[in-house]
Design a protein around this nucleic acid. Structure first.
Lengths: 344, 344
DNA sequence: GTGAAAGCGCTAACAT
DNA sequence: ATGTTAGCGCTTTCAC
């Protein structure tokens, strides 16, 4: 397979400028120890020649790696593709490369991917996606990442709180609360939750938010159906079917992400249950199609693209003594999938 | 689960196996010149130790670069995120890394990204997304890529025919034809097209297909409104508004991709124009949400994930004398957004 | 401020 | 079949 060809090397630039390799290297890296005059000339020549450093040589020699490893559950899930979009934007601005890989929602696979990225010597690791309630997994990941950091790597995560690194934290609880509040405000009491797999912290957090929102109005989630299925469209379908079969009095379903909400809508459509006239439905995330569903989906908007941007920006700052946390904010977007409780 | 030490090197594996560096290298690379017995032992030890080769050293030393550069217009566009998903799947299977970057639908930017990937010494380049009708751009890209190939790089593209490299070619014409055929079959005569920017070859190809489909029934696209706007949801909105205002007799709108179709549906909804009772709408691609829109979208399915897979698989084969081409196939998916012509 | 030289970890000739 | 060794192109001490 591909072999490197005869390309422009740093020596060529150095020779052309009449300086040594070391000086040229210093000049291009913007390090000091070179007179401003010489440095400028070297940079000019390099630009003229169209020189681009060989990243393999650079990194091997101990320079900083300019590639960022991005771990997402699945790029073709809109939640993650929007986050990836944000990361790529910033990377582009900073001339960094983005290496993307899938965890496939499998904690062990994720761990393997993280190790792989570290072994590949990326300079920065961004992990997007829910954490796991399994302490073993989280501990192993944490250990791996902190070793990576102590070797000079930078890490930022999105939506995980227990990894001891800089984190962008979506407003999962507050958003869940807003949702619960909204439904109760519309008069709903028979509320059910289509929740994702219980192993995900995102599910737990959003659920806790919903519980809090209901509690404020004297309702308890303990008395209401909470169905745990996959955190996907299909999971949503299954959950909705289960809910409507076992709890026909339900007038509102909270799906803990938009993908599940889409499944819920689809299941209700199949059952010819009018939304929102008979059952209201809410989602979470506000992926871009949420507005185009029928009915358009009431949901909590999370700024996914910005979350991606923020994560890489965090990782690009010098490491701080203690992990930084950035909350994302959220906004309840009321659309057509929610309405008042049907008159009995 | 093997835990990689802070910095395991090939020497460590070699020492542990009691062989030389060269033998270890050969064994792990699967090259011959090592007895099967020894090779197996080395591989075992390497796995046990959790050894992962340093790709920088490996590539610098003249080995194959194991990274794939993927250029997409935008990852957060479902069409591209599904393709990216396919590429990542295969890469994962082959232990390759995927570096992803955006062209942003800007031909000059795309060219810059390609040059950057080449300068970064990726081993394989995959370019997804429509080509451009601008011959200058295509010629420059072609030159760049062929230089890259002659240096041993591998290239495959998706949906571009004029680059002189291996290509996965979506059934744009045949799909367009199927769409035209479908609408005429339902009795539609007043058909309009919401087309993307005319500079994109994908737009031209799909349009040609639609024209052919109509022509077969004695209709000519020359007599029908074809509105060129952005190849996006917003473009679809604008096109639909323009079409319905200027050609109120229109009973069917062909959008040249699903994103535009979503815009069309949204514009029609805003105008309270019933779909499909008053106007039928078709899209192209069958992105995963197409089935969840209201009404669900009649469209041409392209196997995006497979297209990503095929592209990388093509690129992984040894280069052939002449560029290979793989057609993707397509399937007309009839859903609820199309129906018979309304009775007058 | 600048240059010379020693690696970084690996592959690939060249030996044996 | 296996070992020895010379680089790959760069950064980084360490001299000057």
């Amino acid at each position: 397979m591909p072999k490197p060809g005869p390309r422009l090397r740093l020596v060529d630039v150095a020779e052309r400028a009449g300086v040594s390799l070391a000086t040229a290297s210093r000049a291009l890296a913007g390090r000091d120890g070179v007179s401003e005059e010489v440095a400028t000339r070297i940079r000019e020549i390099s630009r003229e020649l169209g020189y681009v450093a060989n990243p393999y040589a650079r990194t091997l020699a101990g320079g900083a790696s300019s590639t960022v490893g991005l771990v997402v559950h699945q790029v073709d899930d809109p939640y993650f593709s929007e986050i990836a979009g944000g990361v790529i934007q910033v990377a582009d601005e900073q001339s960094l490369l983005v290496q993307i890989c899938h965890s496939g929602r499998d904690p062990d696979h994720e761990l393997r991917q993280i190790r792989h990225l570290i072994a590949q010597r990326v300079g920065i690791i961004i992990i997007a996606g829910s954490g796991y309630n399994d302490p073993r997994i989280e501990a192993e990941a944490k250990a791996e990442l902190s070793a990576f950091q102590s070797l000079g790597g930078r890490v930022a995560v999105i939506g995980r709180h227990s990894l001891g690194v800089d984190a962008v934290l979506p407003d999962n609880e507050a958003g869940g609360q807003a949702l619960g509040d909204h439904l109760v405000g519309l008069g709903h009491r028979h509320i059910a939750v289509a929740a994702g797999t219980p192993g995900l912290t995102t599910v737990a957090d959003r659920l806790a938010g919903v519980a809090a929102g209901l509690r404020a109005h004297g309702l308890s989630l303990d008395d209401l159906p909470v169905v745990h299925t996959d955190f996907t469209r299909d999971g949503g379908r299954a959950a909705a079917d289960q809910i409507m079969t076992n709890h026909p009095a339900t007038t509102a379903i909270v799906a803990l992400n938009d993908a599940m909400a889409m499944g819920v809508l689809s299941a209700l459509r199949a059952r010819r249950t009018p939304v929102p006239d008979r059952v209201s439905v809410v989602g979470f995330d506000d992926v871009s199609v949420a507005a185009d569903l029928a009915p358009s989906l009431t949901t909590v908007r999370l700024p996914m693209t910005d979350m991606g941007r923020m994560a890489l920006e965090l990782a690009l700052k010098p490491r701080s003594a203690r992990p930084r946390r950035r909350a994302t904010g959220h906004r309840l977007i009321v659309r057509d999938s929610t309405g008042p409780v049907p008159a009995v």
